[in-house]
Write a protein that binds this DNA or RNA. Structure first.
Length: 552
RNA sequence: GCGCCCGUAGCUCAAUGGAUAGAGCAACCGGUUUCUACCCGGUCGGUUGGGGGUUCGAGUCCCUCCGGGCGCACCA
């Protein structure tokens, strides 16, 4: 029996009580089945009697009494009792609980996946950097968290596309080109240009590939350098993200919006809806109609489109491509965009609460042994994604970034991220996986065919087995809540608790027969439990884009 | 000035309005005759920034004050 099935029983009992007239017929609140922190409160607990008390006009304990009566008749429920103001604490038979291991092994890599977001088509846009330099820490947080959000949404049944918006248009591209050109010609980089050491590398690479470039006239040379540097820098970003296992389904160029006519189409769409006005020679979108604090310019008085015009066109384009939910993951310095992006959706005739969602990621600070690390060898200003991966590795970087909610500022220490002990949660979780894999390997070598043997779930009645099973049973709900709340850190925190539950089990419950022992049903049952724990950890790590090693 | 985010143990952080606010680190004390000790058990540690409110119940919601971060372009 899993918690959802138990919750369904509770709902059915309450519905029956209403049918019989013992409870007034009111809207049934969502039945929440919690795993109590304090195990004295049972395997599961529900507060539904408390939430039902007010609408039903009955004391919570009276409702709980009727619920307990019904629950005690449910097969698999060992006991149900009232506690405190009206909580109902439930204990399951060990057999009912142990059956879960079979469910998990049968589900395999699908275990934990659900349908709570089935039918939703979601676009997750993140990082979306200028192709004018290496990706830095601000991008890195979203590279880990954004990718994990996309994976978790997909696990909840949504159809998900990840997208990187390349800001390849506008004056910063010219500044970038001018900087590289200056470096290639041995001149100082312009004051308002890009000054990182990588500019020199780009200049050298471009001149190497195309020695005649510096003899072009200035205006042509600027364009040639700009385009060549753009191509190289974008490729570098793509390579480091691939190395980081952050996959984008679409790399969307801002320029392409202008080249394809999408900007005109977007403008037309907004005009249709009646929120485009002309004032003082410029064309504006009246975003203040929908809660923005000022209107935004689409076309400047000189006839040039603004960046904001691209944004609106991009949104309209995404909608036209069939995404009913567009999630934007932005850095803290972009929080001013939240209202404006929501207003764009509303101006396009959409529902700003349904069709668009903007998440803000706060800053990440890096320390090494307590000292803040600011300088990057290459960029000259800030720590880059390359630097981080090089120093701590992909698994540690991804996991560490993904285990904190993105909306609070974060300080990470490089030394702690690389320590290979339980100081470091990523190793702790991975170690649990490797440890189980080792036990299963040993079982195999001993010729134990646990999958073919009779599995007696009722034997898993040790407190630590019960606890481990309970933790495993939580996984689908953890995934669903991580997706619903866009908070994949919940998966990481869960995995740490699950790993602890496994280690505690392993510490006390011998899985394989010792050399002087015969193979017994308890060994088989524990192997099923091990296999289900291993599957759950592997599936959870996969949602975070972290590897689940067989050996460590 | 206006707006957004944040404030929880010495440090880094959890906690979807639920029961006694939890982990890891740091400090101290223990544990393995055989499966991975990268493990397990224990001790120490809190006025959840202050104050008020909402309710059966508030770290969580509302108001206010204090402190920190960020943003307020016909730039991109």
């Amino acid at each position: 029996m899993n918690p959802d099935a138990l919750a369904a029983h509770v709902a059915a009992i309450l519905a029956a009580l209403m049918q019989e007239g013992r409870l007034p017929s009111v809207d049934l609140p969502e039945v929440r089945m919690e795993r109590p922190k304090n195990r004295d409160h049972g395997d599961y607990a529900t507060n539904v009697a408390l939430t039902l008390a007010k609408p039903a006009g009955l004391p919570p304990r009276d409702i709980a009494t009727m619920l307990v009566e019904g629950l005690n008749a449910v097969p698999g429920v060992a006991s149900a009792e009232i506690a405190g103001p009206g909580f109902v604490n439930i204990r399951l038979d060990s057999a009912a609980q142990g059956e879960l291991a079979r469910t998990v092994v049968a589900a395999g890599t699908d275990w934990g996946h659900g349908t709570s977001l089935a039918g939703r088509t979601v676009n997750v846009e993140f990082i979306s950097a200028n192709p004018t330099g290496p990706l830095h820490l601000g991008h890195t947080r979203w590279a880990a968290v954004g990718d994990a959000i996309a994976r978790v949404l997909a696990a909840a049944g949504a159809t998900v596309a990840t997208e990187f918006y390349i800001n390849d248009r506008g004056v910063q591209m010219d500044k970038f080109g001018a900087s590289v050109m200056a470096a290639a010609n041995g001149r100082p980089v312009p004051e308002d240009g890009y000054h990182g050491g990588y500019i020199l590398d780009l200049a050298a690479a471009i001149v190497m590939a195309r020695p005649d470039i510096t003899s072009l006239p200035e205006d042509q040379q600027l364009i040639a350098f700009r385009e060549a540097a753009y191509a190289l820098q974008l490729k570098q970003q793509q390579q480091v993200l691939a190395l980081f296992r952050t996959h984008f389904d679409v790399w969307f160029s801002e320029r392409s919006l202008h080249e394809s006519g999408a900007v005109e189409r977007g403008m037309a769409k907004l005009r249709e809806q009646g929120h485009v006005v002309e004032q003082e020679g410029a064309i504006w979108l009246r975003t203040t109609d929908f809660g923005d604090d000022k209107d935004r310019v689409l076309v400047k008085a000189d006839g040039e489109y603004t960046y904001f015009a691209s944004d609106t066109a991009y949104y309209v384009d995404k909608r036209a491509r069939g995404f009913d939910l567009n999630i934007y993951l932005l850095g803290a310095d972009h929080h001013g965009y939240v209202n404006r992006l929501r207003a764009v959706a509303a101006c396009a005739g959409d529902d700003m609460d349904e069709n668009v969602e903007v998440l803000i990621g706060q800053l990440v600070k890096i320390t090494r042994g307590g000292e803040e690390v600011k300088l990057s060898k290459r960029a000259g200003t800030i720590v880059t994604l390359d630097d981080l991966v090089e120093e701590v590795g992909v698994d540690a970087a991804r996991y560490t970034l993904a285990r904190y909610p993105a909306d609070s500022p974060l300080t990470l220490d490089l030394e702690e991220m690389t320590r290979a002990t339980n100081d470091n949660p990523v190793f702790y979780v991975q170690y649990a996986h490797a440890r189980i894999a080792s036990v299963l390997r040993n079982a195999d070598e001993l010729g134990i065919d646990w999958q073919g043997a009779e599995f007696a779930p009722a034997l898993l009645d040790h407190e630590r087995e019960n606890n481990l099973l309970g933790m495993i049973g939580e996984f689908p709900r953890i995934v669903a809540s991580a997706a619903e709340l866009r908070e994949p850190h919940r998966v990481a925190r869960y995995l740490e608790d699950l790993a602890t539950a496994y280690h505690r089990f392993y510490d006390v419950c011998r899985v394989l027969p010792r050399s002087d022992e015969q193979l017994a049903p308890i060994h088989i049952a524990r192997l099923w439990l091990c296999a289900s724990a291993r599957q759950t950890i592997a599936n959870g790590l996969d949602l975070l884009g972290v590897s689940a090693p067989e050996r460590m």
